[in-house]
Amino acid sequence: MTQEQLQECIDECLRCVQACNYCYKSCLEEESVDMMKDCIRLDRECADICAFTAQALTQHSTYSTELCRLCADACERCGNECSKHHHSAHCQKCAEACFRCAEVCRKMIA
Rank of each mutant, 00 (worst) to 15 (best):
R100L: 12
F52L: 14
Q18F: 05
R77K: 11
S64K: 13
E76H: 07
C27I: 05
R100D: 11
E12Y: 04
I10L: 05
E29I: 00
L6N: 13
K107V: 02
A51Q: 12
K84V: 11
D43K: 00
K37G: 05
C68D: 02
Q7N: 13
M1C: 05
A54H: 05
D43Y: 07
A72W: 02
L6A: 00
C98M: 08
Y63H: 14
T2M: 06
L57E: 10
S32N: 15
T65F: 08
C16T: 11
V104H: 03
C101K: 01
S64M: 12
H90S: 05
C105L: 02
F52A: 11
C50L: 06
E66Q: 11
T2L: 09
T53E: 07
D11M: 03
C20V: 08
Y22N: 15
T62K: 13
L42G: 02
Y24W: 06
E30H: 04
S61C: 06
Q92W: 01
C13W: 01
R41V: 11
Y63Q: 09
C98Y: 01
R100V: 01
L57M: 15
E66G: 13
S83Y: 02
Q3T: 12
A19M: 00
S88T: 03
F99S: 04
C50K: 00
V104W: 00
A97Q: 11
A102S: 15
M36Q: 15
H90K: 01
C78G: 08
C91H: 14
S61D: 06
H85A: 13
M1Y: 03
C27W: 07
L67E: 01
C91D: 08
Q18A: 13
C105F: 03
N80V: 12
A54E: 01
A47T: 12
K93C: 04
G79T: 10
Q92Y: 07
R100N: 14
H90N: 12
H60F: 07
C78R: 00
L14P: 07
S26M: 07
L67D: 04
E4C: 05
R69Y: 03
K25C: 01
C16P: 08
D73C: 02
H90G: 11
D34F: 06
E45S: 10
R15G: 03
Y22L: 10
F52C: 08
A47D: 08
R77W: 04
E103Y: 06
C75P: 11
C94K: 02
H87R: 07
Q59E: 15
T53C: 14
D43R: 07
H87D: 15
R44L: 15
H60D: 12
T58K: 06
T62P: 13
L70R: 04
S32C: 08
S32L: 00
